[in-house]
Simulated assay, not measured.
Amino acid sequence: PAHRLDRLTAGVLVFTVDPAHRAAYQDLFAARRVAKSYLAVAPAPEGTPHVRERSSRIVKTRGVLQAAEVDGPPDAHTRIMLLGVREPDPGGSATPLGLYRLEPSTGRTHQLRVHMNALGTPILGDDLYPRVRTITPGDFSHPLQLLAETIGFTDPVSGAERRFRTRRSLEAWPSGKARAQDPGHPPSAPAPNSCML
C-alpha cells in the first residue's frame, strides 16, 4: 500500500506492484500532492451549512482509541459539503440524514471522523465517535458510513494525470443519488487515465 485508510473505511486505496516505486507514491501523500474525496452519511440538523471547513490540531495517543482535538496550531483541515438531505427512516432518529462530501487537505489519524463529530454530525456506524462502542470482531452489520470516493494525482513515474473513483456506494444512502444532485462531480465524466474501481 502507498497510503492508509482507517480499517472501517471502504473505497479507493492505492497499491504499488513494483516495490521499487513504492516510495515515490508514498512521497505524493506525504507532500500532500494527492486530491482525495470521501462520502459520508451523518445527521443533517436543520440549518446545517452546505459548505463548511474545519481546521484543528488532532492528537492520537498510543493506547487510546479516540483521537482528540487539542489547543495549538492546526495540523488538520477538512472541507465539508452537504450534497443532499433526506428524512430519517420511520422508527429511527428524528434528525434528517445528510450525504456529505469530505475533502481533507491533510491526513491525520481519524481526521474525518473527529471533524464530523466535533461539528455535531458524527458519521453513522462510527464505533469510536462520539463515544466508544464495543463491537464484536467481524460484526459488520452496522458498518461505518464513510467511503473513500476519489483519489487523483500526477503519476510520479509516468507523469500522467491519474484519477480513480470507487463504484461502491454507502449502505445508508440510495446509490447514485449523490452524483445526480452534485453537478460538480458527474459520474459520466471520466478524466484521461481514470479508472472506476
Score class of each variant (00 low, 15 high):
residue 97 L to E: 14
residue 54 R to D: 10
residue 39 L to R: 15
residue 49 P to R: 10
residue 196 M to Y: 09
residue 152 G to A: 15
residue 74 P to N: 02
residue 157 V to F: 03
residue 88 P to K: 01
residue 82 L to D: 14
residue 67 A to Q: 01
residue 161 E to S: 13
residue 26 Q to P: 03
residue 46 E to S: 12
residue 46 E to V: 08
residue 174 P to A: 09
residue 173 W to P: 14
residue 75 D to S: 08
residue 12 V to C: 11
residue 60 K to Q: 14
residue 161 E to I: 01
residue 178 A to M: 06
residue 7 R to G: 07
residue 12 V to W: 00
residue 47 G to N: 08
residue 4 R to H: 14
residue 88 P to S: 04
residue 189 A to T: 08
residue 112 L to Q: 04
residue 69 E to I: 13
residue 107 G to K: 06
residue 20 A to P: 06
residue 179 R to H: 11
residue 6 D to K: 03
residue 148 A to Q: 04
residue 50 H to P: 02
residue 143 P to N: 13
residue 29 F to Y: 12
residue 36 K to P: 06
residue 23 A to M: 09
residue 192 P to L: 14
residue 96 P to V: 03
residue 106 T to N: 06
residue 40 A to F: 01
residue 22 R to G: 09
residue 164 F to Q: 11
residue 42 A to S: 08
residue 87 E to C: 07
residue 82 L to W: 07
residue 184 G to L: 05
residue 50 H to F: 12
residue 64 V to P: 02
residue 89 D to Q: 14
residue 104 P to C: 12
residue 25 Y to M: 11
residue 101 R to S: 02
residue 50 H to R: 12
residue 136 T to G: 01
residue 117 N to H: 11
residue 181 Q to A: 15
residue 121 T to E: 13
residue 118 A to S: 15
residue 170 L to W: 00
residue 59 V to G: 09
residue 109 T to C: 07
residue 50 H to L: 05
residue 125 G to P: 11
residue 102 L to W: 00
residue 20 A to K: 14
residue 84 G to E: 08
residue 196 M to E: 11
residue 3 H to A: 02
residue 180 A to E: 13
residue 74 P to G: 03
residue 1 P to H: 08
residue 112 L to N: 06
residue 175 S to N: 15
residue 133 R to T: 15
residue 41 V to M: 12
residue 156 P to H: 02
residue 135 I to N: 00
residue 117 N to C: 10
